[in-house]
Design a protein around this nucleic acid. Structure first.
Lengths: 200, 200
DNA sequence: ACCTCAAGGTACGGTTGTGTATCTAACCGA
DNA sequence: TCGGTTAGATACACAACCGTACCTTGAGGT
């Protein structure tokens, strides 16, 4: 995605249908990452896709329609859930992948979307619930289930808060600093906070 | 602060100096809470204060100057640190006050400022460090110190992450949901997560 | 009471984005 | 190959906000 040019080079052939729509949504995604929701304008997206605003208006009359289409196309690439045979290694690995992928994508999408949440009175939780299905277990939940199945952890009930604790702390740091978090922080979260609580 | 009127009623007497400046910064604060940073315009603030843009430009030539002046005037009202004689009660009380005061102020300032962070490439951590002095211990740190002094906790070294854990979880929930968190969540954070880790 | 300076009003040109209308030209299918 | 569809370009009126220039008027100091 070459964002150095103001406008994407126009393709030799005129695009239509799916091909065009993909190009627009890709451009919209790039704009969202780069400029945030307040820069998420029909103007910028049309320019980025090498087309014109009317083409966008015909498909997505409201800005929110375009945002949701963009998010459901490009947002949820689930982080692969590792399976090393050790809960500790699994957790660290999962956080590391999240750290890498989330800090690669712009500066962090939650942050970019805050303005949208403010304007609509919604929240990240709601958007997340709207986009992924409701019943999906988190990555951490799957790690813990496997550890229990292996006998690595006792089979006792655990609160959702406890299960997702490392991810919440990770996300908190990410939001506060807007940078990838140091590897030692990941280790600390897992070794000094999470595992001791799980093994009680 | 009556934001229903488009423009504040002009006072009988013409304001100057400190009085005027206070009125402007109060209006700026109201605008920031209500519209977020992207609505934090000279236009809106001047209207809210019942004055005109040139008056603002004379004092704060850059938008960022005005933002920092506004924040340092109205932001940091420190949450009182309770002292009940019990670490558990102290912690719960501290989180409850934070919950009340933070959800009272608009929908949450961190959120409103995200756009500013994105534009300037800074972060909440940096702003926080710039506004309060660097050496200030957190509320939780003071609670723990007192508990150690009372003999309620052993005097062992603890990481900053562990000390501030409940506040970070609280803040995470606040950001994700953009609402005050339920009281049970506070209890859960303190009883099921924090205290067990402190007492090991 | 006067003089000075800043408050406050107004207006300007410029920029960016909005939403819509209109025209042409390319593509696609029958 | 022809006709309907739609991409793509352009233009329009509108709105918000910017940054600055200018002028008038009120308030405070001496």
């Amino acid at each position: 995605m070459n964002l150095n040019e103001e406008v994407a080079e126009r393709p030799a052939t005129r695009r239509r249908g799916q091909e065009l729509e993909d190009a627009i949504l890709d451009a919209a995604w790039a704009v969202l990452l780069e400029k945030g929701y307040s820069g998420f304008t029909y103007e910028a997206i049309a320019a980025g896709a090498g087309t014109s605003r009317p083409v966008l208006y015909r498909r997505w009359p409201q800005r929110e329609d375009l945002l949701l289409a963009t998010l459901s196309r490009s947002w949820w690439q689930p982080i692969p859930v590792p399976d090393t045979g050790s809960l500790r290694e699994d957790a660290i690995e999962l956080l590391r992948s999240a750290n890498a992928s989330r800090s690669r994508m712009g500066t962090l999408l939650i942050v970019q979307l805050m303005d949208y949440f403010r304007q609509t009175g919604t929240s990240f939780s709601q958007l997340r619930a709207a986009l992924r299905g409701p019943g999906q277990p988190s990555g951490m939940a799957r790690l813990v289930d496997r550890a229990v199945a292996r006998g690595e952890l006792p089979d006792v009930p655990r609160s959702a808060r406890l299960i997702d604790l490392p991810f919440e702390l990770f996300r908190h740091d990410l939001i506060m600093t807007m940078h990838a978090i140091p590897d030692e922080a990941i280790i600390e979260i897992v070794d000094d906070i999470w595992l001791p609580l799980l093994q009680r």
